[in-house]
Design a protein around this nucleic acid. Structure first.
Lengths: 129, 129
DNA sequence: CAAACTGTACTACTTGACTAATACGGCTCC
DNA sequence: GGAGCCGTATTAGTCAAGTAGTACAGTTTG
């Protein structure tokens, strides 16, 4: 099985490195570019590639394992591992669920749909890379 | 003019104290319980009431002034001051955190702005009374 | 088996956010 | 005009997050 590629990954300094690594893998899983069973680069290899400390990568991998998206065993390689149920769960969790909370919050505050749309476009532009 | 009451305010430790004070006033303004021109408790009085340092209150008041919701002059009392145009801006800002998380998630999942707008309108109608 | 990898645990350093302590100068009102 | 308020600036302490350095133990592979 192939190894997860981090060629399209770069550190931006806008958020903690370990979170950027975590989101990169999550995004890859949902986008289909990272498949179930794929091998993850070792902590040392990836840390050397990114120029950070192995523990920073370890933190990201530990979070992945806590979410059930990867499996790790002492001394052995780590692998991406998820079920189709988890995939849809992640998709919902990361998109519609957060959007629903935002909508609910805005409605409680009396924000109009037009204001919400304006806010959406503004935030979308702000978060652009 | 009456003084802004903090009787219904209590520190929860879930977020910085100065932000809790800021949001309390913002919510009060949006809810209509705090009117334009009302007098704010002095930094020292409110800090003694809450059991925190005057500078913590000062930080909240300074943010209020930066947002144009209060006016302060050296040696004089501070007052709440806002226009009707600012009301909608406050409502949007109070929900901006959840909205920002939603936008961030959708961007990570590769959702386009158009799809996000469609999702927003759909969720908006679903939550309608 | 042994070398070279692997994951993991522990400690330490750096940095920024948050809060506190203190001091200074301006307004107000008797 | 002076006592007692007021807002403000400056400095310092506290704490957690993030990252780094190092060491230990297990697995793989030749």
């Amino acid at each position: 099985m192939s190894v997860v590629s981090f060629d399209r990954f770069s550190i931006t300094g806008e958020s903690p490195i370990y979170l950027q690594i975590l989101r990169y893998v999550q995004r890859g899983i949902v986008a289909g570019t990272i498949a179930d069973g794929e091998e993850l680069p070792s902590r040392r290899v990836l840390s050397a590639l990114l120029g950070v400390n192995p523990n920073t990568v370890q933190k990201a991998y530990r979070l992945l394992e806590e979410e059930g998206l990867a499996v790790s065993h002492p001394g052995a390689k780590s692998y991406v591992s998820f079920t189709t149920e988890q995939l849809s769960a992640i998709r919902i969790q990361l998109t519609e669920d957060s959007a629903r909370r935002a909508v609910e919050s805005m409605r409680e505050m009396g924000v109009s749909l037009e204001e919400a749309e304006a806010l959406l476009r503004r935030l979308w532009k702000e978060e652009a890379p």
